[in-house]
Design a protein around this nucleic acid. Structure first.
Lengths: 337, 337
DNA sequence: CGAGGATTTGTTAGCGCTAACACGCAAGCA
DNA sequence: TGCTTGCGTGTTAGCGCTAACAAATCCTCG
């Protein structure tokens, strides 16, 4: 294919048709594989396309077909392992299905910022939108989701009238908590994520339920913000606690901060205190000590999210739900003493 | 704004014009702010837009203006801190300037996969492309970048005929290495990133140059793959080294693995060995011990990358270069003994 | 009070493509 | 031979929008 000189108009279907000596419709048929074309005609057309470096004009096609082949993703602007991985999972599945992905990131999720992002994407003429914003406020924003436009959510908005895919956070928290209880601890402390995150709520709920089901006392929950710093601060105050012996951190970053604070306080993990996290970030196996944590398969989440959106675009149910089951990964931080 | 019933055609400019009792051109002028419109006419038009829930058809607009307001980003499908942060920086800057971002991710970078991704994006009618793929092979792919289409690269392809923005990796490596030498160590070992990464090459080069400039022996470089696992393995073999006293890891993840291996081998950091990393991931301050590392401002990188692309789309130089200077963050891992 | 200019609105064409239908031609059949 | 059938190709219209120009309206001032 030759590069077209800068400033020159891009070749159109008609230009190709001229070179190939056919009508523009025949060229269209060759490109889209619609309608019958004699092999020898097809070859002439393909040669002309090659010669001119023709590239279909997607705007013109979209205008007439009403389809853009683009999906929108509203993503949280953060480097949190989960959301970023989910994004790649979605992108992959979408690309395989022939869709492009347009992202619109949101720095501080809120009812209106998410609605704005969705509106932005609609103006970009996306055919559907995936919202990755596992916040309580995101859930509320989705409650007002239009019925005439396909929106799906990942990990949030239980009550929203949109399909939702989520990892079973409660179950993951239950697994971690039961694992710690099974080791003989009287109770398990918890460092929760920010209150406005659904995942934080669910993990806390799973932890609390499990303690109650086992009839053990529920300690005061400690509130963090997912960051290692907040885990560190939580660890500093927990270190003063006289009968502390097991902690379940809401994510791996906070667990890391916790480990750091304990190390500084001369508390040995797992000998004095056992610690578990959530997410299984790739680094968790190399923390000091290696961290027991709950693994979420984000690639799978991304794939299934795309699937749900594809279904919804086909007129599927607004109330579809999909749940991905997490897995407990046991490492030294809850190992033998 | 009312939701349109499913299945109904979206309202067009003409529909709005009908309701407002004006011509479609007047509506267009109101929407785009082109040409003068009487305030009272404008109000009627806006009311009609509101009433119908009108949303401009971007395909039609793109068809006639030749502009889509979309940029493409070729991203590496990975959760590495740097690329992901850069992506957000770009998205932010682009959104502020009124552009949308379409991403195309690449799992294994290579000459052809990157060229394919760029071609994909061009078919999506993006106005320009940013390639985030700091590989040697990416650089080669960019050497064949078309002259008639704006492409910029972040962090790679020194020789490619496209604008490039990068963090000064050599300088960062120099800072880390000099910092270690200044602490009185005889030499500094290095765990390098994968050979096909430009960043890995530059960091290694900066390290090597610095050692040579100071006239100290250059130890055999150890090759990792950015992962904590590879850092851990490097640490296991380094632990056997009799006169080891300072290590500069190519990134923070590998430094983490290294710290883990040293902890297992009973080597104390910084007492027995001092360790520095690269990137300053948010967790680095909470490693055991907190890690001295080189900070890169990825948000700035994203912003400037967008700036370079904007310049290139305006007919700017294909050989523009921008360099972001990194910063050494000193923490306990190179602290007093 | 009417010419001339500025302001506001309308008309027309066409961007590049696909849908729908029309046409020509060869083959099949009676 | 005439009529159908089906294949391969062409013609036309129109998607929703903006650019360019044309027309109408309003004001200002001699």
């Amino acid at each position: 294919m030759k590069a077209t000189a800068a400033g020159t108009r891009q070749p159109s279907l008609t230009d190709v048709a001229g070179v190939a000596g056919v009508s523009h419709m025949t060229v269209s048929r060759v490109i889209n594989g619609t309608g019958p074309v004699r092999p020898e005609t097809r070859a002439r057309v393909l040669a002309a396309i090659e010669e001119l470096g023709y590239r279909p004009n997607s705007a013109a096609r979209a205008l007439v077909t009403g389809r853009t082949g683009t999906l929108g993703v509203v993503a949280l602007e953060s480097n949190l392992y989960g959301p970023a991985s989910t994004l790649y999972g979605i992108e992959n599945a979408a690309r395989e299905a022939g869709y492009a992905i347009t992202i619109s990131s949101v720095s501080r999720p809120g009812r209106s910022s998410i609605a704005d992002a969705v509106e932005n994407l609609r103006r970009q003429a996306v055919e559907g939108v995936i919202v990755i914003a596992p916040h309580v406020s995101a859930g509320r924003a989705l409650e007002a989701a239009p019925a005439d436009f396909p929106v799906v959510a990942v990990g949030g908005g239980e009550t929203a009238p949109v399909p939702v895919i989520s990892v079973d956070q409660r179950d993951g928290a239950r697994r971690a908590t039961e694992h710690l209880l099974a080791l003989g601890h009287r109770t398990v402390w918890h460092i929760a994520g920010p209150e406005d995150w659904l995942e934080a709520r669910d993990r806390e709920l799973g932890w609390r339920e499990t303690l109650e089901r086992h009839g053990v006392g529920v300690p005061q929950v400690i509130r963090g913000d997912w960051s290692s710093r907040s885990g560190y601060e939580a660890g500093r105050s927990l270190a003063k606690e006289p009968d502390l012996d097991a902690v379940f951190a809401g994510n791996d970053q906070m667990a890391l901060g916790l480990l750091r604070a304990f190390a500084e306080a001369g508390i040995s993990v797992p000998r004095d205190v056992r610690v578990a996290g959530f997410d299984d970030v790739p680094e968790a196996a190399y923390f000091t000590p290696p961290l027991t944590t709950v693994r979420q398969d984000f690639i799978e989440v991304g794939r299934r999210t795309f699937g749900l959106l594809a279904g919804r675009m086909d007129g599927g149910d607004r109330h579809a739900r999909a749940l991905v089951v997490p897995e407990l990964i046991v490492r030294e931080s809850t190992g033998p003493r």
